[in-house]
C-alpha cells in the first residue's frame, strides 16, 4: 500500500481532532477529502506533513513502506510528501530561487543523485513559472512576500512542480482563487499528474474536482471518515450540505 493510515487519533491542546481515522491509497490515485469546518481536514494534512504541535495518541501512518511517524518534517518531504498550504507564510529575506534550489537538492541528496545544475534549474523554474502565469520578476523576490492570496497558491504549485513529489496534499488550494486563477493552477497540477503521482485534495467545493477527477471522495466528520464514494458525493454535498451524511 502506497499510503496507509490506520486508526489515527490525534489531539492538540488536549482536544481530539482526528478520531480513529483510517485511509488507504494506492500509488497514482487521487483522493479527495471533504467535510465541514473543524472536522479535521487540515489537521490531517499537517499531521501527514509532520507538524509538531499535534500529539499522536494512537495509530500508524505507513508511506512508501516507511513509518511516517518515525520521520521528522524534512525527512517526510525528502521522501516525496508535499503539502500545498492553505495559508502559505511570507518569509522576507529568503529569496525564492535559491530556497527552491536548496529544497530540490536536499531531495536529490536523499535519492543519491547529484545536485542540480544552476543554469538548468533556472531554466526549468522560468518555464514552469510562465506556465503557471507567474511573472518572472517574482522569482527574484522573497518567499510569498507581498504576494496576493492567488499568487501564493500559484507559487505553492510551482514548488510542487519543481519538487515532483510522490504524494501531494493540496489543502484548500482553491480557496481565494478566482475562476481564471483556479483554472491556471489546476492546469499546472494536471501537468504534474502522472501514473506515479498521487494526490490528496482537501476542498469544500465541487468546482475544484471538475479539474482533477478524484478516484475517491471521502467525507470527514468529527475526525473520522463517515462516507466514501466517487465524485457524485461532492455534488450531493453541494446540493444538500453535510447534514445527511
Amino acid at each position: 500500500m502506497f499510503l496507509s493510515i490506520k486508526n489515527l487519533t490525534v489531539s492538540i491542546e488536549n482536544k481530539r481532532i482526528l478520531n480513529n481515522f483510517s485511509l488507504n491509497m494506492n500509488e497514482g490515485e487521487i483522493h479527495s477529502i471533504m467535510g465541514p469546518n473543524g472536522s479535521g481536514k487540515s489537521t490531517l494534512a499537517h499531521v501527514l506533513a509532520g507538524k509538531e504541535d499535534y500529539e499522536i495518541l494512537e495509530g500508524e501512518i505507513i508511506f512508501k513502506d516507511k513509518n511516517l511517524l518515525d520521520l521528522n518534517i524534512e525527512e517526510r518531504s525528502q521522501l516525496g510528501l508535499f503539502l500545498a498550504f492553505q495559508y502559505p507564510v511570507e518569509i522576507p529575506g529568503v529569496n525564492i530561487t535559491p530556497f527552491l534550489k536548496s529544497s530540490l537538492n536536499a531531495k536529490l541528496k536523499l535519492e543519491g543523485k547529484p545536485e542540480i545544475d544552476a543554469l538548468k534549474f533556472a531554466k526549468e523554474l522560468k518555464t514552469l513559472a510562465s506556465e503557471l502565469g507567474i511573472p518572472l520578476e517574482m522569482l527574484s523576490r522573497s518567499v510569498n512576500e507581498g504576494f496576493s492570496g492567488g499568487e501564493k497558491k500559484r507559487y505553492e504549485i510551482l514548488q510542487m512542480s519543481i519538487l515532483k513529489p510522490s504524494l501531494s496534499i493540496l489543502d484548500e488550494t482553491d480557496s481565494g482563487l478566482d475562476v481564471d486563477a483556479l483554472k491556471t493552477v489546476m492546469e499546472g497540477v494536471n501537468k504534474i499528474k502522472n501514473d506515479n503521482s498521487s494526490f490528496l485534495i482537501i476542498t469544500h467545493y465541487k468546482k475544484l474536482l471538475d479539474y482533477i477527477t478524484p478516484d475517491f471522495v471521502h467525507v470527514i466528520k468529527d475526525g473520522t471518515i463517515v462516507k466514501t464514494g466517487d465524485k457524485s458525493i461532492a455534488q450531493q454535498i453541494e446540493t444538500e450540505g453535510y447534514k445527511n451524511l
Binding site: E74, R76, S77, V89, V94, S102, S103, A106, Q159
Partner: peptide, 28 residues
C-alpha cells in the same frame, strides 16, 4: 513555528531553516 514548519516541509533541515529565518529576521 509556522515559518520553521514551512521551510522544513520543503526538505530543508531544521538547522538550515533556522539559519534562513534568522537572516530573514534581519533582512529589512
Amino acid at each position: 513555528k509556522d515559518l520553521l514548519f514551512y521551510l522544513r516541509s520543503r526538505g530543508l533541515s531544521k538547522k538550515n531553516s533556522l539559519s534562513l529565518l534568522i537572516k530573514s529576521f534581519f533582512h529589512k
